[in-house]
Amino acid sequence: MAARRANGGDLLRLAGRSVRTLGEGYVRTRSGIRRTFHVRATRSASGNLANLLMLAIFSVLMLVPMLYVVNNAFKPVDELFIFPPRIFVQNPTLDNLRDLASILGNSWVPVTRYLFNTVLITSAGTALHVLFASMAAYVLEKYPFPGSKAFFALVITTLMFSATITSIPNFIILSRLGMVNTLWSIIVPAIGAPLGLFLMKQFMSTVPDSVIEAAKIDGTSEMRLFFRIVMPMVKPAWLALIIFSAQNLWNTTGDIYIRSESLKPLPYAMQQIMSAGVARAGAGSAVGLLLMVVPIAVFIASQSSIVDTMATSGIKE
């Protein structure tokens, strides 16, 4: 059909409507079938405009709470309690961040310890999750071994059972294994998160079987094939897995499984400051900003590879 795959940018006026040109095609109009240079006759310019306006209004609503968090972090205390309250800061100040730094600097357990815990949990949990999930996803997608279908069906079903609902039996299992009150209690269960395996397996389907067969004919070992050939090909997917897993672990407060203060992660310490109410409203708002900025910044940096991965995330019957 279309000889030219146009980029969809140029506009063409046809039958009184401006339409996008997307390549050659035939369009049925009131006066009969006619050959045109576009097939995007299903889009009206007014509809496109309405769509943009609606999304813009909607996104302002989505942004309000976040704008508020950002602005609050820079408000002096008198502005935090002004009536009527304002969203936007008048006299921006860094006092809140300084307050937060001094509170954290004077805490019983040094803040570097909380930070270390969170960094350790996030990096160890994410690295092992990506490695193990990729290995499992690779064989589930490429080798029809007995039980592979059943295992994957189990993975899909368990996508539904979030960690909050299984936390009680999990607590029992962790305590039997002697992992309660160690950082392992957060790291290990996160390694087996079904979402990562699911996304990775779906993305593995984009690796052509011929590549794997060719490597095998060349006598490449399984290990080499996986680490040197397959893993580089699914790079967008492991970036996505890193994001999902790291976000989850970065936000973990570990309030059930960890009792020792020196093993608590950073979000727990932050929550304590936030819950101190009016006395620490300034520092609390700085915490809000910190907790929000990290995951969003990571997402901005990796959006395109995440979206590439999610393109294969569908469940086929």
Partner: peptide
């Protein structure tokens, strides 16, 4: 397919113990 099972094993153990067993 013994190599395939070996690849699956580390994830399967954690997944079965901490996601399926709790259910």
């Amino acid at each position: 397919y013994r190599t395939a099972y070996l690849f699956l094993l580390p994830f399967a153990v954690v997944f079965l113990v901490f996601t399926v067993a709790p259910v």
